[in-house]
């Protein structure tokens, strides 16, 4: 079960499985992000390229608007590997 919650203006929390079936649900949440935020992956078990696509398009929108970017935190090892394979460690701040 996937969920994405905006806690405040500074944090988005992700939970569960971020797969292709969750793209529209996630898009509604990330479209509300207007400035630099932390995306907390603590509760996220899994992500596929569909999830990567949502994060990528959000990052582009923020950067192109000069509005900072996403700071991705607390990824599990498997998710971190996906980001590295995709070269996304070069376009996101991952801590």
């Amino acid at each position: 079960m996937f969920d994405a919650k905006i806690l405040d203006d500074k944090t988005v929390q992700l939970f569960g499985r971020f797969d292709a079936a969750q793209v529209e649900k996630a898009r509604v949440v990330f479209d509300q992000v207007k400035g630099p935020v932390e995306v907390d992956f603590t509760g996220l078990e899994y992500i596929s390229s569909a999830g990567l696509g949502i994060l990528l398009m959000t990052q582009r929108r923020l950067k192109e608007g000069g509005r900072g970017g996403l700071r991705l935190t607390n990824m599990n090892k498997h998710i971190r590997d996906v980001f590295q394979y995709a070269g996304f460690d070069q376009v996101f701040e991952i801590v």
């Binding site: 390229s49 696509g53 990528l56 950067k63 192109e64 394979y85 995709a86 070269g87 376009v91």
Partner: peptide, 22 residues
Amino acid sequence: DVNKPLEERRPGGLGVHLVKMY
């Protein structure tokens, strides 16, 4: 090309590319 700058990145094609890596 996973080394492109952000502004040139597109999500399309990434999934199959990653499958090949796994």
